[in-house]
Amino acid sequence: MNSVVFAIIAIFTLTFALAAATNPRLMHAALSFAVMFVGVAAFFFLLGAEFVGLVQIFVYVGAVAVLIVFTILLTRRDAEKDRGFNWGGVIVAIAVFAGLVWAILKTQSVSIGPPVIKALTVKQIGEALMTSYVWPLQCVGVLLTAALIGALILVLEDKRE
């Protein structure tokens, strides 16, 4: 793992995450959100989990970002108005960050280097999904179907009379 690449991806991801969190213009923030997920996928590639990185790009940059843009466009009339910014949230976020970083730096067992491992192939992931993880996989299928039907029912126009 290359530390220069890591630093570049970290700065890229965190910059776009901050832009998505603080940009008052909704559409720009949604696009920063999509770009941020490319950075997160690059982290997964760097860690040797290429399949998860690809899934992340397909699901987030492909589907969730489009859903968010659609929702922004459907609620457009409301979107342009300026919203207040709650500074209490900034204080809470900084406090949580400081506490967690302090905890990480105090923990000796996490300051270890990566062991040498064999590359994880998609074949291995598929075999694991179809053998020991087949029950969770089916449950996720049911959950996605339920979420699809639930989302449709939520946005259906109610027919009066």
Partner: peptide
């Protein structure tokens, strides 16, 4: 490149998400 650097980056991302969820 130790594990703690990865954890700190992920904590930073988590806190930016927390900031967005709490203050927007």
């Amino acid at each position: 490149m130790t594990l703690s650097i990865w954890l700190i980056v992920s904590v930073a991302l988590f806190c930016i998400g927390l900031l967005a969820a709490l203050s927007r």
